[in-house]
Amino acid sequence: MSIAFRVNGRDVSVESEPDARLLWVLREQLQLTGTRYGCGTGLCGACMVHVDGDRAFSCQTSLHEVAGRSVTTIEGLSPDSSHPVQKAWLAESVPQCGYCQSGQIMSAADLLAKTPNPTRDQIVEHMSTNLCRCGTYPRIVRAIERAAKEA
């Protein structure tokens, strides 16, 4: 069946099973490959997107759940990497292999949207949903603190 929603400000209509996972619809039907597959089980956060402004594990989100709603992926966070979180990520040289970083950035942007000046504990608590095997955690904390300051 066909399900209509918004992605990065654009209306889309997708032919798929209603229980298809948003992650794979984004990656394979809409070619938005910035959203990553890491575990498929809600344990790593590589697939993090925003649905109506709240972060969501796209691997745990069924297509029917986003019908009529607005999804933002890393590609839609800013047109030119100018979101304060993206700028801070470059300034602190956060990414290593980079595979987890779309998800990290989407989680961080969600945090700062709701808590513009998070404490260190709030950062750690919020960001512990997202695994980074390269171990960029110290820099993620620094980048979020920088983004909070510079936003």
Binding site: T33, G34, S93, V94, Y99
Partner: peptide
Amino acid sequence: RVELPTKVNGTADYAINVA
């Protein structure tokens, strides 16, 4: 690092993204 900008905007070219 030269590839860093591609790692904050989703465009980094991992093989898993090939289509």
